[in-house]
Design a protein around this nucleic acid. Structure first.
Length: 555
RNA sequence: GGCGCAUUGGUCAAGAGGUUAAGACGUCGCCCUCUCACGGCGGAAUCUGGGGUUCGAUUCCCCAAUGCGCUACCA
């Protein structure tokens, strides 16, 4: 039996040749320097910040260079498939404004390089696996799980690298042994299950000096020297579905990906991919191995976590807390490129798309997720969003995650006015962080959520009723800020309080307290809290009747 | 165990063979101020350790430690 005969025996009828596929998916016609990137999530139903982090790199690289960014679903693991996961992936990414030029969408594939779902591409993978079989670069392997376990134990005992490679699978050298050749033939004809393994040309268990190495340029990490692979890794599983390794190589070649952005956990398997690309006679894409994003514990202690199953790392967490997508984007960009913050400081109003993103500025060590920093970034990001827009965004958040705040959205103009409080001053207030925090922050504007949270300050507690009575008496809703505060000063002085805090500090014995204490009494009557933005401005938004009502209620 | 990647303040980090080792967040103090926020000023706080190379190393090399990852017919 020749290689060709074996290949035909295993894959007797395929509709296309490798050459035909090459012709069907030609080199893309793009301007010089344009990058083609892809996001390849597996539909496990869990998207985390790390995915987003990588997605931004892909998206920026492609769109900044006038290239193409596509979405490919990597569902080669039939055991891990989760219902509706693809939809979740698409909507989550869309929420964070990640836009694809081609690939899988909710209404079908877009683009000329599909199908973009790996489980639909079986025929293509088989075609190229057949090519490797024909060239003697791959072989069918019938080793059972138990046999493989036994091999591993033997290897461990002998202190050899574990795995299937030259010398360990008898099927590898079938062409040198007619008996094995006929066994293969019989078992294939009998329909017994088997996998296709790469017949690696690497030298197993070589000493460090003798190991052949390849130089690979990583756009983030610089020059990498990777040892040659020698493992006969599985390229097609028993199920007929390819492994990640094979699917990656075939797809990224055929889809003409120029830059492969993926997590650093793939670094150890790079040698496999290098060999596969070489065996198929294809050019290696530029790899960009990103550092893993980790998180800081909410208890303040730092702990590095693996990305896998920490719910705090889930995108949904930030969505349900109501972090604005632009804020998350802004934050991710600051940790993605070390000079982003500096650029932002110089270009406060520019679109983040105008920033020149480079892989060279990416860190190769993992960053801890910093909630404080996100909050800070969020404050300044929200400041740049128009109040009406913010209001409608909050409404959509509430509709999805917090319907109990429905009353807030009954009058959208009113809400916008509330949100805009102090935001256009010479030194704008920055106290809006995320939706849940905002709901609490503006809670006193609504009778549904108004509560007395703070007590009157000790200095003025005894005079509270007198202060409020005088205030109500003198209140004129049309007073301007200055006139209004002048009246409070007068009330303070009349009742024995200092008109200025400094006077009180200098001679505390002469006064009961100062004007600040007096206004705090008013603030608590109106807002239920000792801290708030400017009382006069709040009153203008609240309206006269509510102001009088709140004050009267405390008398 | 083997292999790989990483290691500058609490966090994100710039940096270069000779610097007072940037900046941001956080933190502390002060100022501004009717509270808070904003803003301003200032403080504390960093090159994981050990060997080399060098006149000089945080920077280059080696070793170690630590962290993370890979070691699947998962991605």
């Amino acid at each position: 039996m020749t290689n060709k005969e074996l290949a035909d025996l295993i894959y007797p009828s395929l509709s296309h040749t490798p050459e035909e596929y090459e012709a069907m998916y030609p080199e893309r016609d793009l301007p010089e320097g344009a990058m083609v990137t892809r996001l390849g999530p597996s539909p496990t139903g869990f998207i985390h910040l790390g995915n987003l982090y990588g997605a931004f790199v892909d998206e920026r690289l492609a769109h900044q260079s006038g290239g193409t960014f596509f979405l490919r679903i990597e569902d080669t693991d039939d055991k891990r498939f989760v219902e509706n996961a693809v939809e979740t992936i698409i909507t989550s990414l869309a929420f964070f404004d990640i836009k694809f030029d081609e690939g899988v969408t909710q209404t079908g594939d877009i683009g000329a390089y599909g199908d973009y779902t790996q489980s639909h591409r079986g025929e293509i993978y088989r075609t190229f696996a057949k090519k490797l079989l024909e060239q003697g670069m791959a072989y069918p392997c019938f080793l059972s799980e138990d046999e493989i376990t036994a091999i591993r134990e033997k290897q461990e005992a002998a202190k050899l690298s574990p795995g299937i490679y030259a010398g360990w699978s008898k099927y590898r050298d079938w062409d040198k042994d007619p008996e094995i050749a006929s066994e293969i033939e019989e078992r294939v004809r009998a329909g017994e299950p088997f996998v296709i393994r790469l017949k690696s040309t690497g030298v197993p268990n070589a000493s460090a000096e003798d190991t052949e190495r390849h130089e690979v340029v990583d756009a983030i990490r610089g020059n990498l020297s990777v040892p040659a692979n020698f493992l006969d890794i599985v390229i097609i599983k028993q199920s007929g579905i390819p492994t990640y390794h094979f699917a990656h190589v075939v797809d990224d070649h055929l889809m003409r990906t120029t830059h492969v952005v993926r997590g650093e956990e793939w670094l150890p398997s790079l040698p496999i991919h290098v060999e596969l690309f070489a065996d198929l006679g294809w050019e290696l894409p530029v790899y960009c191995h990103t550092a893993q994003l980790m998180k800081i514990g909410e208890d303040g202690n730092k702990r590095k976590l693996s990305k896998r199953k920490d719910p705090e790392l889930s995108l949904d967490y930030y969505r349900s807390q109501g972090y604005h997508p632009a804020a998350v984007r802004e934050y991710l960009l600051t940790i993605l490129n070390s000079n982003y913050e500096e650029w932002r400081a110089e270009n406060p109003d520019a679109s983040s798309d105008d920033f020149a993103f480079t892989t060279a500025k990416m860190s190769s060590s993992g960053a801890l997720f910093d909630l404080d920093k996100l909050n800070d970034v969020s404050k300044s990001t929200l400041l740049r969003i128009d109040a009406a827009e913010l209001a409608s965004w909050l409404k959509s958040w509430s509709d999805e995650f917090a319907p109990e705040y429905g009353y807030v959205f009954e009058d959208m103009d009113h809400l916008a006015a509330i949100l805009d409080l102090g935001r256009h001053d010479a030194r704008p207030r920055a106290d809006l962080v995320y939706a849940r925090q905002i709901m609490d922050y503006i809670g006193y504007f609504f009778d549904e959520s108004f509560r007395r949270e703070d007590e009157y300050p000790q200095e003025a507690a005894d005079d509270a009723k007198a202060i409020l009575a005088a205030y109500l008496d003198s209140y004129d809703h049309s007073d301007d800020n200055e006139t209004w505060f002048g009246k409070i000063r007068q009330i303070a002085v009349d009742l024995g309080y200092a008109a200025k805090p400094k006077d009180f500090k200098k001679h505390p014995e002469e006064y009961k307290g100062h004007v600040g204490h007096v206004s705090t009494v008013i603030r608590i009557a109106l807002m239920g809290r000792a801290t708030s933005p400017d009382v006069w401005a709040i009153q203008q938004i609240m309206g006269e009747s509510k102001v009088r009502e709140r004050i009267s209620a405390c008398m």
